[in-house]
């Protein structure tokens, strides 16, 4: 393998990365410091008003004051995305473990079923939850069937929104976790029992550490899209509280403030990069320990 071949062989990959990833990000970064157009749009320039606006805005008086409202939106987004990720972990681990225990044929069928929802448009799937959670919807009827009181109001709550996020992204958790637990040698669990470890110890000391790479990968795959989610807050959350995704959308739409929308998008991107960097650092440290 000559050096030139290695260089030219990678050119298509680099070109693709440059055109589809780096250039668009640079454009968004450029727009975030551009000057705002009167009715939306922008003019190239250098103006950091948009970033200042994240922390300081003109209040109902004319003075520029510290305003935590955008920080609150960012914090809320992080909390909801974290909650969705945590719930996905709790649900995906037993499911993935169960699938891993099945016969080779059944495994294929079950994994196929996990990926099945991806064949249907996301909007349609989120709409299905409107029917399940809505007034006199499936959930309420089942609840009443089992003697529950006459309650309503599942829809348009943060709970409904997180349910939708968990539902949308959980296959992204199940698949990597399955890949990890499937490789666990049953002999290791037997060994832990031989050494007087109970079921709990086996789970904590054997299964969880071996499933950790899958759990980490799955958490990233769920957390990152949850940060930018738009459909669930709008349709299931009732649009009553802005999340970062919906905030960006309103800035490009109703607010006609593209630079500010781009600035928030850059903040979102930075958060994602931080998550990925933390994970990369952990992975390197683990690799060093293993050596």
């Amino acid at each position: 393998m000559s050096r030139t071949f290695r260089f030219w062989g990678l050119v298509p990959a680099w070109a693709l990365m440059l055109l589809t990833l780096i250039v668009p990000i640079l454009i968004v970064a450029g727009v975030s410091v551009a000057e705002r157009g009167a009715y939306g749009g922008f003019d190239w320039g250098f103006d950091i008003t948009s970033y200042r606006q994240i922390l300081f805005t003109e209040g109902w008086t004319d003075e520029l004051e510290f305003d935590p409202k955008y920080l609150a939106i960012i914090a809320r987004t992080l909390i909801f995305a974290g909650a969705a990720t945590a719930i996905c972990v709790l649900l995906a681990l037993p499911v993935a473990y169960y699938i891993a225990q099945q016969s080779a044929r059944l495994k294929i069928v079950l994994l196929y079923l996990v990926t099945l929802p991806f064949w249907v448009s996301m909007i349609v799937r989120v709409y299905a939850w409107l029917i399940i959670l809505g007034n006199d919807g499936l959930l309420e009827r089942v609840y009443r069937l089992f003697g529950g009181a006459d309650i309503s109001g599942f829809l348009f709550t943060p709970g409904a929104m997180i349910t939708g996020m968990v539902y949308s992204y959980i296959p992204l958790m199940i698949l990597p976790v399955y890949a990890s637990v499937e490789k666990i040698d049953p002999a290791l669990i037997e060994a832990s029992h031989d050494l007087y470890g109970g079921r709990w110890t086996a789970l904590r000391r054997v299964i969880l550490p071996l499933a950790a790479p899958g759990l980490t990968a799955g958490s990233i795959l769920v957390f990152v899209p949850s940060l930018g989610t738009v459909l669930e807050p709008m349709l299931l959350g009732g649009g009553k509280q802005l999340m970062m995704g919906t905030l960006i959308q309103t800035q490009f739409g109703g607010a006609r403030n593209w630079p500010f929308g781009a600035a928030i998008a850059m903040v979102l991107l930075t958060l994602v990069v931080i998550v990925l960097l933390l994970n990369a650092r952990r992975a390197t440290r683990q690799a060093e320990v293993a050596l």
Partner: peptide, 10 residues
């Protein structure tokens, strides 16, 4: 108008 709306939904 935008301020009213963003403050409302913050």
């Amino acid at each position: 108008v935008t301020k009213v709306w963003t403050d409302l939904l913050q």
